[in-house]
Amino acid sequence: MLSEDARRSVEDSIKKYSQKKAAVLSTLHIAQKEKGWISEETIEEIAGILDIPSIEVKEVVSFYTIFNLRDVGKYHIQVCTNLSCSLLGSRHIVNYLEKRLGLGVGKSTEDKRFSLSEVECLGSCGTAPMMQINEDYYENLTEEKIDKILESLGHAQK
């Protein structure tokens, strides 16, 4: 179940549109921020709030890549591997993160703290290579920078 606060934010976003259904993306963002991912139960709840069949929530949540359809780590690390980042070494960034976290792309650490994904262009081409962790951007990445970021997120030094 979504919290009272989340329900209030959903009510606010419904007011922006002439039809309730339009608030489905906002509602999914609010739910994901609170839960970390979108479960079947959340889909049913959102369908109920917006008065639409749950299939209409499902087709949206499965179309837009930003929504996680399964539980991800507390910190979801997403590395851009599109062209500008690739040219400046995003492959190396992915390999380094795999080594540091001991996991492959698409996987999560056993303690559920970190997940690693490759994503398409995030609009940071002038500050490549880059990654996004949850909602925050980290740009002009180097190995040293990644070490510091992981340390700040509680990942022990190698």
């Binding site: 922006k16 993306l25 906002s26 179309f63 837009y64 890549t65 930003i66 929504f67 994503v119």
Partner: peptide, 10 residues
């Protein structure tokens, strides 16, 4: 003016 956030679809 309202902001509508997308979901990562080009």
């Amino acid at each position: 003016i309202y902001i509508h956030r997308g979901g990562g679809a080009y």
